[in-house]
Design a protein around this nucleic acid. Structure first.
Length: 567
RNA sequence: CGGGGUGUAGCUCAGUAUGGUUAGAGUACCUGGUUUGGGACCAGGGGGCCGAAGGUUCGAGUCCUUUCACCCCGACCA
């Protein structure tokens, strides 16, 4: 491609609202342009990057036997009613009616469609397993799209679905898909981590997210310093506590603690470690039809993890409550304890099971219990893991330490089980001729989000630094002064040689000055720029490496060979 | 969906408090010239329904009402 003819509208200024590097540079370098909230146009450079990523995904999917299909973007609303997700997705589903007044939705993901596709077509266990996928535009009417391609309303996703006749076979496929996904990210040149994730309301036994490590990531993940363990903070657990503070000694007793309400005050009042205090966090849990106030008891040294709390309560959503609501239930804010707790439903953190030497609220104004021993209620109370891990906690898998890092969720794989097959009555006949619902797995990967992720991880103050696997063009030939016939001729020669060799090359033949064209090349981020300029009279050209930002002199005669070596 | 903000040239923004020549700058674009190794310089030029609708006024980018869009913080996010 000749740069003089290319549609690559670069600009010195970024959109005023762009804050992320990927958003700023992709917009400035002429890859994307915004058309409305969360909607972007892909210009030629972006389209090339997307195609490269898609090609890698396709290759790896083919290797593991997955087959590509493409389902309609517009999907009948009826299917979403059958699965119940028209309610669950709510306003995120963009609905509309056609001329015959039938309701449709723009596909945000395609479980229903895929199940419908194979239903009554795959009818025997002999045809299982089956893994089908597509790479397609998705639409989710997000309440707040942001960060450029990172969180758009319209985006490109690879979504795959596998169908099995046994849990074991699903496990095998799941492991294989995880490996394939890791391979894709490695090939793209990304630093990532596979982490355990919350499976959410859909349930399912396994749920893993593929996180590209970046400070700008929206997810917080806990990772181990020694082993492979990593988990989204919503699902992270810590191992046994290594150092346990010395326990305060006290016989069980009710103690006057006037006006001592917070954990801080309490620990100071008794001069004990907050580890031995019991904190009560009250929340309102929203269920499908009703809501109720639930009390969560945990150690004073811990914090409530709301996603875990929602799961423990089997609820859909969680909200804050105020003191008045608690008082209305007969509770005493600041002095709520787990013993003899009959005013509200409560969940106690698992680390408090059989715990002793505790200080907890006495459910009476200005009184706490000391020397409390929860083993007395361990048979009747409901215990669950509801606390958030802290940096420095020990790893649940080894003796390493957990620390936090930020990640961009670029992939999510999980085991769906028979949820969708049952809802849509999709069945096959097993060896005994008995109808069984398909056991499913689902595997998603955000293609357009990957484009942004590459830049989040690979950029500097001057612009994009594409990895070799993702670069829109591998080589940029920059003719410093196009009026210099020798320079132009050398540029044309190399351009033709590289094109003939199948290299993706662009020739910057614009009537611009050296500095302008270099800045442009850096902004776009070609891995290599061959500079044909003033050194040509001495028989030399230069290769500019975008990663090292160094220029190396190469003899003009050998430049073709040198470039072929580099790429 | 709650709270806040912004809409003026392709882009980044002045101008709006206190209404008053023909609505500005930088950048980008076009023409000519000088330059030619790190986003050059000079001269000339094109480009605006001042988000939209309604109102007040002799007169509205500026004041009033309504509305739409976009952005930020939060909630939400298979």
């Amino acid at each position: 491609m000749r740069r003089s003819k290319a549609f690559i509208p670069t600009s010195k200024e970024a959109p005023s609202d762009a804050s992320l590097a990927s958003h700023i540079f992709l917009a400035r370098a002429g890859f994307i342009s915004q058309s409305a909230a969360g909607l972007y146009n892909y210009m030629p450079l972006a389209k090339r990057v997307i195609k490269k990523i898609e090609a890698i995904v396709n290759e790896e999917m083919t290797k593991v036997g997955a087959q590509e299909v493409e389902l309609s973007f517009v999907t009948p609303a009826e299917l979403w009613e059958k699965s119940g997700r028209i309610e669950k997705f709510g306003k995120e589903l963009l609905r509309f009616r056609d001329r015959k007044d039938n309701m449709f939705v723009l596909g945000p993901t395609h479980e229903e469609m895929m199940v419908e596709l194979i239903k009554n077509r795959v009818t025997s266990y002999k045809n299982l397993p089956l893994n089908l996928y597509q790479i397609k535009t998705k639409f989710r009417d997000e309440a707040r799209p942001r960060f450029g391609l990172m969180r758009g309303r319209e985006f490109i996703m690879k979504d795959g679905y596998s169908f099995h006749s046994s849990e074991e076979d699903l496990d095998r496929e799941f492991t294989e898909m995880e490996a394939a996904y890791k391979k894709i990210l490695t090939r793209l040149g990304l630093d990532y981590r596979v982490v355990e994730a919350d499976s959410g309301a859909i349930g399912g036994s396994g749920s893993k997210e593929l996180m590209v490590i970046a400070d700008s990531g929206e997810d917080t993940i806990a990772v181990c310093s020694k082993c492979e363990y990593g988990a989204n903070i919503e699902a992270a657990v810590s191992g046994e506590r290594k150092v346990i503070p010395e326990a305060p000694e006290a016989v069980f007793n009710k103690f006057a603690t006037p006006d001592v309400k917070s954990i801080e005050d309490l620990a100071a009042f008794f001069k004990i470690d907050p580890y031995y205090t019991v904190k009560c966090v009250a929340k309102k849990l929203i269920y499908e039809k009703e809501s109720e106030i639930v009390l969560f008891f945990l150690r004073g040294s811990d914090n409530l993890q709301e996603v875990k709390a929602v799961n423990a309560a089997g609820a859909l959503e969680i909200e804050d409550v105020n003191e008045e609501e608690l008082k209305a239930l007969g509770l005493v804010p600041g002095f709520i304890g787990p013993l003899d707790q009959d005013k509200a439903k409560h969940v106690i953190d698992i680390t408090l099971k059989n715990a002793a030497n505790l200080v907890c609220g006495a459910n009476e104004l200005d009184y706490h219990f000391v020397g409390a021993d929860l083993s007395v209620i361990s048979d009747v109370a409901y215990f669950a893991d509801i606390v958030e891990v802290n940096a420095g906690d020990s790893c649940p898998k080894c003796d390493g330490e957990l620390s936090f890092t930020k990640g961009i969720e670029v992939g999510h794989i999980f085991k769906l089980g028979t949820t969708y097959a049952k809802a849509l009555k999709a069945e096959y006949l097993d060896e005994n001729g008995k109808a069984q619902p398909f056991i499913m797995g689902t595997y998603g990967m955000g293609i357009s989000r990957l484009v942004a992720s590459v830049i989040e991880q690979h950029h500097d103050e001057n612009g994009c630094i594409w990895t070799k696997a993702t670069a829109p063009y591998m080589v940029n030939i920059m003719v410093s002064n196009i009026k210099d016939e020798a320079q132009m001729a050398a540029g044309e020669k190399l351009y033709k040689e590289l094109q003939d060799a199948g290299v993706e090359v662009i020739l910057d033949d614009r009537k611009e000055r050296f500095g302008f064209k270099m800045k442009d090349a850096e902004l776009i981020g070609f891995p290599y720029t061959v500079i044909i300029g003033k050194e040509l009279v001495n028989g030399n050209v230069q290769v500019y490496d975008r990663v090292s930002t160094e220029k190396t002199a190469v003899s003009a005669d050998e430049i073709f060979t040198k470039v072929m070596e580099l790429i």
